[in-house]
Each structure stands twice: as C-alpha cells, then as structure tokens.
Amino acid sequence: MGMHLPSNKGRGRRAPMADINVTPLVDVMLVLLIIFMVTAPLLTAGVQVNLPESRAKALDQEQKPVQISIDDKGQVFIDTDAVSDAELPAKLAAIAAKKGADGKPAAIYLRGDTALGYGKVMRVMGELNQAGLNRVSLLTDPSDPR
C-alpha cells in the first residue's frame, strides 16, 4: 500500500490533508480527567446525616432511638453508659444488629458538647458509619429566635 505525497509539480493545487489533529481531543480528555479526579472523592467520602427540621412534628417510631453523647472531655456515652474508645465499635455493631420492624437499625441521636473538638465527633461518626448505622441526627439546643 503506497502513500501519496503531495508534490510541488502540477497546477498549484494542494492535496487534501489526511492527518487527524488529535490535540483538541487530548485537551478535552485531560479536562474531563481533572473533573472526574476532583469530584470522585467528594462522592464517596460523605457520611449520611439526617438532621431534624426545626418545626417538624414528632415521628411515630416503634423503636426507641439510641442517644450517643460526647462530653467536653471526649468521653462517649451510649444512652447513660460510659463506653471506652476500644469498646465503641463492638457496642455499635450490636446496636446495628438489632433491626426494627421496618428492617432498619435504630435511629441514632448524636449529642456533642460545645467545647468538644471536631475530630472526636468525626471519629464517632466514622465508627457509626462503619457499623452500618447511617440514620444519624445531630441534636442541638434550640436558640432564642429573638
């Protein structure tokens, strides 16, 4: 198979160019790669949090929600029982194993002290997510609407 090369001999006409310019294609693909690299971690790194609305009515629940509290020293309590950091994953796995009538684990109410660091709350939320407890509500004191 031979290739036809344009020659300068002739009537001054140029032969059509048979090459494909791939530079615009590469530019578009690199932009798409950057977009996917930026957005992919944002899609998988989130912890699902169901925050209650301020004017919502009380929900009818068959299962009593579990209250997890973290005091200003970082001590974790499940309902009123103190739990160490080593015991927390096992206790949360036991809570997740108890399914309600709807087949879902109990709702979790997470309370954290104002003086508490953000990292401790996120570690507890990570343990909740690892145990499969994704119905988490963060509780706050209602502020004065004045």
Rank of each mutant, 00 (worst) to 15 (best):
M1V: 00
P6D: 05
S7K: 11
N8I: 12
N8T: 09
R11D: 14
R11I: 14
G12Y: 01
R13V: 05
A15R: 13
M17D: 14
A18P: 10
D19G: 06
D19V: 08
I20L: 13
N21K: 12
N21F: 06
V22F: 15
V22T: 13
P24R: 01
L25F: 15
L25E: 05
V26M: 15
L30R: 07
V31F: 08
L33A: 12
L33F: 07
I34S: 02
I34A: 07
I34N: 01
I35D: 02
I35K: 04
M37Y: 04
M37H: 01
A40W: 09
P41M: 10
P41Y: 07
P41L: 06
T44Y: 08
T44R: 10
A45Y: 11
V47P: 03
V47W: 03
Q48I: 00
N50V: 04
N50Q: 06
P52M: 04
P52H: 05
S54Q: 09
A56Y: 01
A56N: 02
A56S: 08
K57S: 10
K57G: 05
K57Y: 08
A58F: 08
A58I: 10
L59R: 14
E62I: 10
E62T: 10
K64V: 12
P65W: 00
I68W: 13
S69N: 15
D71K: 03
K73M: 01
Q75G: 06
V76S: 03
F77K: 05
T80Q: 11
D81K: 11
D81V: 11
V83D: 08
V83Q: 13
S84M: 11
D85L: 03
A86R: 08
L88Y: 03
P89D: 03
A90E: 11
A90K: 04
A90L: 07
L92K: 03
L92F: 04
I95T: 04
I95L: 14
A96R: 10
K98L: 12
K98S: 11
K99I: 15
G100R: 03
G103R: 15
K104H: 13
A106G: 09
A106N: 12
I108N: 06
I108R: 07
Y109K: 15
L110Y: 01
R111H: 06
R111T: 09
A115Y: 04
G117N: 10
Y118L: 11
G119T: 13
G119M: 12
G119A: 13
K120F: 03
R123K: 11
V124D: 01
M125Y: 02
Q130F: 04
A131R: 06
A131G: 00
G132H: 13
G132C: 10
L133F: 04
N134E: 03
N134H: 09
N134F: 03
R135W: 03
R135Y: 07
V136I: 09
L138P: 00
P142M: 09
P142G: 13
P142D: 14
S143N: 11
P145W: 08
